[in-house]
Computed example of a mutant assay.
Amino acid sequence: MRPGIFNPILFGKRLFQQFAVDTYIKIENSRLDYIWGHQDKIRADLYQGLVDSLHAGEGRADSVEKRTVLATSFIGGPRDMRRRYMDAMALVRRYGKPDIFLTMTCNPNWDEIRQELYPGQTPQDRPDLVVRVFRAKLEELKNKLLKKDILGKVRAYVYVVEFQKRGLPHAHFLLIMEGRYKLTCPEQYDRLISAELPNKKKYPELYKLVVKHMMHGPCGALNPECPCTKGRPSCKNHYPRPFNAATLQGKDSYPLYRRREDGCKAMVRKEWLDNRWVVPYNPHLLRYFNCHINVEACGSIKAVKYLFKYIYKGHDRASIAVSEADKNGDIDEIKQYRDARWVTPPEALWRIYGFELSKNSPPVKQLQLHLPNMHMVSFQAAQNIERGLPRVVHLADKSE
């Protein structure tokens, strides 16, 4: 956006969305085509695999394996996601289980977005604005959490940026706190997290924000057609939650937050909802960022892997088909990645701008562990395996 210069692309509305997606798909496809086109030049296999191939009578290197590999260096691919997951688990082994699980979702009605729209435009017409403002808000959230210690001193953290099917970006944070700031009792939960409607007279602004951003539903019996209930006997997110006079420590789950039956209700989508429908939040962060920002205490969860796999589950797909190999027995990881790829305009622009998709701190350095006859060896496609084996054996002896 430049003053005095008319940019027709920014006025394209849905055509702008299509232009952004098409542009990024060209970029991604060019990267995938490069990886696919260089598969037959350099191959890698385990030393044991080479020996097995030689025993089977395969003399040429191009017959060792027909797998098309999507390298770890390709951001967003399955190998890259698994590498990041393993890095996150390394932080857990070093610093302990995470204490806080925080989710921040973009609010398309932020003033920073609205005031930059051209006349007649809506936020969905300008995914570039949505992406840039959300990144600015995300950086401010990181500043609040990591430098100003609004929830306590953070020892290690992981965050991932994802994109909903309808396009809005959101970020998942897992925070591992320092020893004195770890959440160990219900009194500490209540100091950081609330799951109740605030007093309307005492905190009118906070009350409006909770009703606007932090009320789940109505669903279940009140609205069987709600996406979280449709086709199910009840809400998949277990709303409405039970009333609790005080916060309790749940068994292998999130705490049972305080939800007092005080008669406080709010009209949400034509239904009166009470404290049982409130999504846990931090009052300061909710008021500061004016968006859906869910804060949960997860220090008692034993299944830590579930949380990390949740934030590293990968990109959305329009449909899922499980196929290990084609009719010739070949496996094409690049084709599997491309099939049913779902890209929204904000994700396309986020990737074009080169913004970070994930980060963990402290950084993790991966070290290779070589087992006997199980180290990786690179070789040319047309190379004769028998000629390459003496060098391979030398490498094996050296590693042992």
Rank of each mutant, 00 (worst) to 15 (best):
R94V: 01
G220I: 03
K251E: 13
L50S: 11
N384Y: 12
V69M: 04
L54T: 09
V92Q: 00
L248Y: 04
K66D: 11
S399Q: 14
R135W: 11
D252V: 05
G217D: 05
K212T: 13
C235P: 06
S73V: 08
A61K: 08
R114C: 11
E196R: 08
E386G: 10
N143S: 13
F74Y: 14
F289E: 03
Q188S: 07
F16M: 02
K165P: 01
C264I: 05
C219S: 10
H370F: 12
V130F: 06
Q18I: 00
H55Q: 15
N244P: 01
L256A: 10
V92I: 08
A195H: 01
N244D: 03
P390L: 13
Q380V: 07
P119G: 11
H284G: 07
I42M: 12
A90P: 00
K147P: 08
L395K: 14
D316V: 09
L222I: 05
I301F: 00
Q366L: 12
Q48I: 02
R84S: 04
K335S: 09
I311T: 02
L32A: 02
P8R: 00
R166L: 06
L15D: 03
I113Q: 10
R84F: 01
V377E: 15
Q164I: 05
N282T: 06
P255Y: 02
P283M: 09
F289A: 04
L307Q: 00
S73F: 07
P233W: 09
R260Q: 10
Q115N: 12
